[in-house]
Nucleic acid binder design. Structure first.
Lengths: 190, 190
DNA sequence: ATACGGTGTTTATTTTAATTGTCAATCATG
DNA sequence: CATGATTGACAATTAAAATAAACACCGTAT
């Protein structure tokens, strides 16, 4: 809720200076400066005075923030946000071509869902998380060699996996074609 | 904008006590009490905290006040508000039976429109305003004797008048039946 | 009865917002 | 260029809101 930015926006839309608006609203230019820089949280009374002078209703002012708290449930593929594979320091074979794209990129959820692309020859290296978490996935296309603890397995399209993230694990595309995996882990890195 | 009443309304709708809501919002019960009794104007930050704890969006909260500032354009006769004839102190013949009813009673307009009823024998006495204003009207029914400055005239239904309010003027119903006048003056008493 | 847990309200203090006056930067004018 | 006017930002003071702690009230259960 960037009140300051929004106020400045509507003020300038009307071509008013801080002093002009202040005069009409019965406040001072300094106050408006502080509000617009979010250095103070105006009282309802003050904000109402300002909006009356513009004029704009309170609900109209705040309506622009409505989608801000509204959870976003759906994402197109292009809206997935690329996240960096967490390099585990001394992983020798780690090739950086692995693509991890998060579904619902921004806000913090209790679930981290990824669209992962493994080119041929790609390798995450050995990963392990220190905190409790569980990780699962389904292979969409291609095939991948997954190592968890002391087990190794090659999964193909349609296969799935699930394991405790604290166990050392590694993903390697040993095939000739790209492998796509959709994975989920809970909770994500907090 | 009765913020306090509205907050209390939404709070009770959720079955929350002031202390419960305060705890969830990270404020104190005393603060909520003061806000609900309109003894303080909460900051946007505070109100946001409260609404988040309810939960309710800012725009939804303020949308209920939207019609409050919406100008009311139409009024039924029963909505006219009776206003007291301004008694000019030493007016000897002033009979108090004159009824002045204002169209659009409440808010301040640039025009004061009145529905005036003069019973037989009624008399406003001599009136005069100190500030610039103009006054006009039309007789709807009955007849009335109007004195402006040094001119006297009896008007009947359909007749009208207009004069500078600073001129001494007087309305007397010298007839046998009630007289109704619709008048307007601008600007009203500011 | 009265002691208890719940409510909302009130008061003194602390914290925060608003004012006041000033500043430097920008811009237009002579 | 110099001047005056206007802009937004800032620091110190004043005004106001938020806190914490007490208060009175109500129902009820010991």
């Amino acid at each position: 809720m960037d009140i300051g930015k929004k106020l400045q926006s509507v003020r300038k839309q009307r071509g008013l200076s801080q002093r002009e608006l202040a005069s009409r609203a019965g406040l001072t230019n300094g106050t408006i400066s502080l509000i617009e820089k979010n250095k103070t949280s105006p009282s309802i009374a003050s904000l109402k005075s300002l909006l009356d002078a513009i004029p704009m209703s309170m609900s109209e002012f705040f309506s622009s923030f409505d989608d801000e708290n509204t959870p976003k449930y759906f994402f197109t593929a292009s809206e997935f946000t690329e996240i960096a594979p967490q390099v585990s320091g001394d992983s020798p074979g780690a090739s950086a071509q692995v693509s991890l794209r998060q579904i619902g990129g921004s806000s913090h959820h209790a679930l981290l869902m990824l669209y992962e692309t493994y080119p041929p020859e790609s390798d995450t290296g050995v990963e392990l998380l220190s905190h409790e978490a569980e990780e699962a996935g389904v292979v969409i296309s291609g095939s991948i060699e997954i190592t968890v603890s002391d087990q190794v397995r090659v999964l193909s399209a349609g296969d799935g996996y699930i394991f405790d993230s604290r166990l050392p694990h590694r993903f390697r595309n040993t095939g000739q074609q790209e492998c796509v995996i959709v994975s989920a882990s809970t909770p994500p890195t907090f």
